[in-house]
Every structure is written in structure tokens, then in C-alpha cells.
Design a protein around this nucleic acid. Structure first.
Length: 603
DNA sequence: TTCCTGTTGGAGGA
DNA sequence: TCCTCCAACAGGAA
């Protein structure tokens, strides 16, 4: 411990996914130290830069959150701002402690598997350097580890388990939100903040899962302060082509609080909210709050969201108005988020894959993730066991399946980084158990890249849910790419917007354009032909692909496959899954020359 | 052991 | 708009 540490604290406040000042228990703990010097930083996390799939839309949202936070700091204290340091925390933090004589490091708890590894390493390094570490919960309603303890040490696999565990913590009540600070202590002066004498460590860049979005190599600077030596948010400096970021959704704490305020004002909307009754086809405005990306980036406190909503519900109850209940109401949605966090918390890295995952039912999907390589790592490569399935997967990803409801949703996802929850259900069911029979892990990776509200636990959990891998098992309840959309949007407005080539089709044919007579196709200015690839649609804008398969036929094949997989009853941590002998159970080992569920007869 | 419930299916009928 | 049936899963309560 450095001399005078207790009387003269130099506090480094490390932001991660808590890009807000309101309701930040960690920030309050940091300020309670009465720092003589207070330095808020965001590190250039190696995981975020290279090891996670992050599309341009999420980058844009993140940068807006950082910029907004920087402005908020400056408002509270003109000398302050958020310092964005272009280097991974494991190498930069020890240098900062040393250079600045930091006495305390304060940050928010994170239970994602990657984050736990990172934080454990940081805490170990801090201990060695004599820096005191303070960690506070802020990201979820309840501490996921605490929920797991109250759930007998097991992952929470249903909303009932989560609720039961939460009642044991504080009668089911999360902590009340904390007010933002009224002022923030000073940082060092410019001279003492200067880090030009420090050498920047190079960032490990393999594997670079963002490579396809990069227009240039991440440049190496001689110091850690960025090109203008001012620690500013480096908009131009991430190597990602931000001109591709078309999302209309804006990041930042001010924007989050504005949206929440608008929602809260609409008391009937809050009181009657039932998720299954909100339309996946609505846009401008959408039928849900769209606050999820703010929960992910911490620009909105989940506890403030919870308690503001509870305030309205209480008022509605007193006025004897009908009020919706858990799990379909708004608090129910937040409880599901906590459920997924507390499902992931005890399982760590294995939660994100079938391989080694005790809660994941093993299903003989196409395009399965390859088992760990010689270094013991699951590197994200997958087994192309079927060229046909690989093509279906690519067409799904690019929104050219030939099913307009699916394609409209996938194009909305790519352009804007957000689609309604039930839209996610549609496309996820279609890729996995209700169409392509492709591994849920392929879909989860695409969502990871494209969703601005991507949260590992929730994304992976929902993919397992929809593919009937875990959480949910009624695989005979299958979303139709035609009937489901039609139920919500009989006019096909969502399709007309995101598949503009079909805009002139009449409502009778908009969900199944291949059934329109050729004469009508000509009249409406769009022929149904080809596979939608750039080579097949030279007169782009005037063609739309034929459906890539007969859905009813595929639904039957998938149902048969699911029934068989359930009867085999393997899970991700079974030895037969680990050593590959599962193939014998499914009659598609190479000797048998099988082809998975496609050739299997009904049992 | 049976019975009931589980955030959000589809088709067909009254 | 609301029912029933379809073929039928898992987990927890009784």
C-alpha cells in the first residue's frame, strides 16, 4: 500500500458496461472514499475489439454512450471527462497504478464468463500492486451469484425458480436506485495526467472476429492517450467502417432517461403491458420500449427501470385499474433478464455452447460448432456437414430466404440492430427446429454481431429456448414464416418497408409472393426468381428469390429430428457428445453414410 | 403416480 | 374474439 493512501485517495474509476452516472453503486462507493484525485476511464477492451463479434451499429451505439458520459462528467466538473484508454485493462491498469500512484480501483461486477476471467486477473494484479479494489453490483436487479446460491447452487432454468430465489434475497425487491452525484472530484492536471513516457503494449489480435468490418488495421501509437493525446473518445480510430452504421437508435444516458420518461408518462401502456400481445411488426413506433440496448450498455439502470414501473403499477392498482402480471408485464421482462444472468453465472464459458454444457440438450443440428482445438479452446469454427444447410444459413443471414416475413426481419436486424422479441422468435425457430435444422450457435453468433442490445446471457439463453435446447421443450409449437407474421400484420407493412421490391404486391400474396401469377408479378414490378444472390439478381430491385425450400416439408423433417434427439436424451456434457460417439446414436456416422434427420424415418 | 402449468403456435370452427 | 384440437415436451406439485 502506498503511503498516505487512506488520507489521500487517488481513485481510478473503471467503466465497463456501466456508461451512466445515475444509480451507480460502484460510483457512489468510489465517491464515498473522498478522493483527492478521481479519474474515470474506459479501457480499449481486447475482448470487445477482437474476440467478440461487434457490428458497426453496436460500435456506434457504444461510442454515443461514451460521448454522452463524457459530457455528463464535464457538466458536473469542467475539469473532468471520461478517459478512453486505447489498451486492454490487463496491461494498461498496472501501468496507470504505478504512474499515477493510484490507491483505489473501483468497478462494477460482471458475471459474463469472459469478464470474470478478466476481473480475476485484474484483482490479482491489484493485490500484488497494493491497490485496493472495490466491486459493486449494478448491472442486474439481483446479484446472479446470490440468486444461484438461493437456487441451491443451480442455474435458474425457469422464471419460477428465479422468483423463488429472489424472494429469499429481499422479498423479491431489488435495491432502490441511487441519485446521480451532484459533483465529481478533480482529476490530475494536464501535466500530471500525461502518459507520454509510457509505452503502449500491443493488443493481441487473434482471432479477430471483427475482421470483416475493419477497413484498416488498428494502428499502434507510441502512447496510450490516442492520436490527439487527450484521451478522447476515438471515433475515427477503431478500424471499423462506421459509415455502415445505419441504426436510428441512439445511445447515451440522456437518451435512455428520455425514453424511460416518455414510457412512464403513458400509465395505461405500462399498466397493461403484456409482451405476447405486443406486435413484432410495428415500427415507428415499435410496440415495446426499446430500452434493452441501454440496459446492455448501462446507460439505463435496470433498478431505476424496475422501480419507476412499479410506481406506475402501484398507482394503477390503487385506482382499481386492471394491471398485467409477471411474467408477461414489464417487470417480468426484467426478471427474465436476471434469470438468464443467473443461468449463465454458474456455468461460465460452457453456457455459450452445446459442447460441455450441462443444461443444453444435444440435438444433431447441421453446422455444429467444432469441439475444442488442441489448445482446449472452442474457436468458433463449425462443421459444414451439409452444403445445402450452409447455403440456407447464408441466405437466412442475408435476408434472402424467399420467405418475406423472415427476410424483412433479418434485413431490419442488419440495418437497425434491433428487432422485436417475437420477430427474433420467428427467425430463430426458422433457422433451427422449424426449418433449416441448423445449430442455434450459428444464429447466436449472427445476433451477437448485429444486435445493439446483445447480452451474452440473454442472447445465448433465448437461442437455447427457441431451439428447444434448454428452458423450453415444446418443439411441436412451431412458428410459421407465413401464418405468424400474417396474424400480426395482415397488410404486410413490415415486409413492404424492409423488402421494398415487394412493396406493390397485394396483401393476398405479400407473404407468399411465389404464388402470385407471373402477370401480376410483372404488373407489380418484381419477378420471383433465383436465390437472391448478387449473381442471380442483376436487375436488382426487380426480383425477389423463390423460397429456398418447402416449409411444410421441412417442418415435418425437423419435428422427426427433434423427437429422435429428445428420445436419445443426450446433453452437452455427456461423454458421447464430447468424444463424438453421439453420431452412432443418430445413425449418421460416416460408416453408416447417414445424413442426419433428413434421411431418418419416423420413429 | 397423476395432474397441472409453462411469457408469446396453427388450423378450423362457432 | 374465443374456443378446441393437434400430438404430446419437462418440471414441479399433489
Amino acid at each position: 500500500m502506498k503511503t498516505g493512501a487512506a488520507s489521500n485517495p487517488v481513485v481510478l474509476y473503471w467503466h465497463r458496461t456501466d456508461l451512466r452516472l445515475h444509480d451507480s453503486p460502484a460510483l457512489h462507493a468510489a465517491l464515498a472514499l473522498n478522493p483527492s484525485v478521481f479519474i474515470p476511464i474506459w479501457t480499449w477492451d481486447q475482448h470487445y475489439v477482437y474476440k467478440a463479434r461487434v457490428g458497426p451499429n453496436r460500435w456506434k451505439f457504444l461510442l454515443e454512450c461514451q460521448s454522452d458520459l463524457s459530457k455528463a462528467y464535464t457538466t458536473l466538473n469542467p475539469k473532468q471527462k471520461l478517459h478512453v484508454v486505447r489498451e486492454g485493462p490487463q496491461t494498461i491498469l498496472p501501468k496507470l497504478w504505478e504512474h499515477w500512484g493510484v490507491t483505489h480501483l473501483v468497478f462494477e461486477k460482471d458475471t459474463d464468463a469472459y469478464a470474470r476471467d478478466r476481473d480475476n486477473e485484474i484483482m490479482h494484479l491489484a493485490q500484488k500492486a497494493g491497490v485496493e479494489v472495490i466491486v459493486k453490483l449494478g448491472r442486474t436487479l439481483f446479484d446472479p451469484d446470490e440468486i444461484v446460491r438461493k437456487n441451491n447452487g443451480k442455474p435458474t432454468m425457469s422464471i419460477a425458480q428465479l422468483e423463488k430465489a429472489a424472494v429469499k434475497i429481499n422479498n423479491g425487491n431489488p435495491e432502490k436506485p441511487l441519485d446521480p452525484p451532484k459533483s465529481i472530484p478533480d482529476p490530475w492536471d494536464k501535466e500530471r495526467m500525461d502518459l507520454s513516457s509510457l509505452k503502449r503494449d500491443s493488443i493481441d489480435s487473434q482471432p479477430d472476429l471483427n475482421a470483416e468490418h475493419r477497413t484498416k488495421k488498428d494502428e499502434q501509437y507510441a502512447d496510450v492517450m490516442g492520436p490527439a493525446k487527450d484521451f478522447a473518445v476515438p471515433w475515427q480510430d477503431i478500424g471499423i467502417d462506421l459509415s455502415q452504421a445505419k441504426t436510428p437508435h441512439r445511445g447515451g444516458e440522456q437518451e435512455a432517461l428520455r425514453i424511460l420518461g416518455e414510457c412512464i408518462k403513458n400509465e395505461d401502456y405500462i399498466g397493461r403491458f403484456e409482451k405476447p400481445n405486443t406486435s413484432p411488426a410495428d415500427f415507428e413506433p415499435q410496440s415495446t420500449t426499446l430500452l434493452s440496448p441501454h440496459l446492455h450498455f448501462g446507460s439505463l439502470s435496470v433498478r431505476k427501470f424496475w422501480w419507476d414501473v412499479q410506481g406506475v403499477l402501484e398507482k394503477q392498482r390503487k385506482a382499481k385499474k386492471p394491471v398485467s402480471t409477471v411474467p408477461t408485464n414489464l417487470p417480468g421482462q426484467l426478471l427474465f433478464r436476471d434469470m438468464y444472468f443467473a443461468a449463465q453465472a454458474p456455468l461460465g464459458h460452457s453456457f455459450s455452447h452445446t459442447y460441455g454444457n450441462e443444461v443444453a440438450r444435444f440435438i444433431d443440428w447441421h453446422l455444429q460448432t467444432n469441439p475444442p482445438n488442441q489448445d482446449g479452446l472452442i474457436d468458433g469454427s463449425y462443421d459444414v456437414d451439409s452444403q445445402e444447410a450452409e447455403e440456407w444459413f447464408q441466405r437466412w443471414k442475408e435476408g434472402r430466404t424467399g420467405f418475406p416475413w423472415i427476410d424483412a426481419l433479418m434485413r431490419q436486424l442488419k440495418q437497425e440492430g434491433w428487432i422485436h422479441h417475437l420477430g427474433r422468435h420467428s427467425v430463430a425457430c426458422f433457422l433451427t427446429r422449424g426449418g433449416c435444422y441448423v445449430s442455434w450457435e450459428r444464429g447466436a453468433e449472427v445476433f451477437e454481431e448485429l444486435l445493439i442490445d446483445h447480452e451474452v446471457a440473454c442472447n445465448v439463453g433465448n437461442w437455447m429456448w427457441l431451439s428447444c435446447t434448454a428452458f423450453f421443450a415444446q418443439f411441436y409449437r412451431c412458428y410459421s414464416p407465413i401464418a405468424f407474421g400474417k396474424k400480426w400484420d395482415p397488410e404486410g407493412s413490415l415486409i413492404r418497408r424492409y423488402c421494398p421490391e415487394l412493396a406493390n404486391f397485394d396483401k393476398k400474396h405479400i407473404y407468399e409472393p411465389w404464388k402470385a401469377p407471373i402477370a401480376d408479378q410483372k404488373k407489380w414490378g418484381c419477378r420471383i426468381t433465383g436465390d437472391g444472390s448478387s449473381s442471380s439478381s442483376e436487375d436488382s430491385g426487380h426480383t425477389y428469390p423463390k423460397p429456398m425450400f418447402d416449409f411444410n416439408e421441412r417442418r415435418e423433417i425437423c419435428l422427426t429430428g427433434m423427437k429422435h434427439a429428445y428420445s436419445v436424451g443426450l446433453h452437452g456434457n455427456d461423454i458421447k457428445v464430447k468424444d463424438g460417439s453421439w453420431k452412432k446414436e443418430f445413425g449418421n456416422d460416416e460408416e453408416a453414410g447417414g445424413n442426419g434427420p433428413v434421411k431418418r424415418q419416423k420413429t
